[in-house]
């Protein structure tokens, strides 16, 4: 880097003005291209989807393999899958994050092992989660194609996100809090429950929302763990079709399913946009409150 900076001929080769102009033009062109494509996608989904969405669409059963009717059982299945996923991943994730942030030295073998394996877990493709879920939850544990299997598979998947955000939240709590608590003779357990966790709550909430967002947008891990059945699920032992699987099925396997796929896609995208805006709002608030504290 320094070599390039100090060698005069590195700059002499550049025809000064014109390269600047071309670069500026090029960068604005990229921005227009990227935002244009995104707007095209969103406008297309909105335009074709808004005609489908109504109260009826949300509250009735799909008819004729999903070509007509609504998506009520699919919404219920999606909710149940996300519920199972969160019920399992929150205790695991928060516990792991607390251990990593508060009770383990960075260099201890446990900390290093858990961190490395979480980094790897974050990179595992969703289809591989699907294979694993099918082999472990459906077959070995005998849960079959069920909402339970799907939710547990997703729980493994969202764990890294949840842990990372909770850890960030805990790390953002000023060191002074811990020292003051220790000086007052408060046990670390009490410090954790009364002081650190409440202070780290925004981080936890961000992780929770990001996890839910990841869970409802997942398709590949669910097609062969929670299955395709589009009837109203009676318990978490039943197979249930998630919203994203519904869109996939309507688009690929059902001719004439496009309009209802648009409607479902609009519901999915709207939910995700709401989740993401809440996340950035929370993160912003979090940042401001930290400035006040420090």
């Amino acid at each position: 880097m320094t070599r390039k900076m100090t060698t005069p001929q590195a700059f002499r080769a550049l025809p000064f003005r014109s390269s600047e102009g071309i670069a500026t033009l090029g960068i604005w062109a990229v921005v227009v291209l990227v935002s244009g494509t995104l707007f095209w996608l969103l406008a297309d989904i909105f335009w074709h989807g808004i005609g489908q969405v109504s109260w009826n669409f949300l509250t009735t059963e799909p008819l004729n393999a999903g070509r007509e009717g609504g998506i009520a059982p699919i919404l219920v299945s999606t909710g149940l899958i996300v519920g199972v996923c969160m019920a399992v991943s929150i205790p695991l994730g928060v516990g792991t994050a607390i251990l990593l942030a508060e009770f383990t030295a960075n260099e201890s073998w446990l900390g290093r092992f858990v961190r490395l394996s979480l980094d790897t877990l974050a990179g595992v493709p969703s289809i591989v989660f699907g294979l694993f879920g099918n082999a472990f939850f459906c077959k070995t544990l005998g849960f079959g194609f069920s909402i339970l299997s799907g939710g547990l598979t997703l729980a493994c998947m969202v764990l890294p996100i949840l842990i990372r955000s909770t850890q960030e939240g805990l790390r953002a709590v000023p060191e002074d809090y811990r020292r003051s608590a220790a000086a007052l003779g408060i046990t670390r357990t009490a410090t954790l429950w009364e002081l650190l966790l409440p202070a780290a709550m925004p981080g936890l909430m961000v992780g929770l929302l990001l996890g839910i967002g990841r869970a409802i947008s997942e398709t590949a891990a669910l097609i062969f763990t929670s299955g395709y059945v589009d009837r109203m699920p009676e318990s978490i032992w039943d197979s249930g079709r998630a919203l994203s699987v519904h869109i996939f099925d309507l688009a690929m396997n059902i001719s004439g399913g496009e309009s209802n796929a648009y409607g479902s896609a609009l519901i999915l995208v709207t939910t995700l946009v709401m989740i993401n805006s809440t996340v950035s709002w929370l993160a912003e608030r979090f940042r401001k409150s930290r400035i006040l504290v420090v």
Binding site: L41, S217, E218, I247, A265, L268, V269, L272
Partner: peptide, 8 residues
């Protein structure tokens, strides 16, 4: 944040 199935 847009899910892959929507892109697809």
């Amino acid at each position: 944040g847009i899910p892959s199935v929507v892109y697809g």
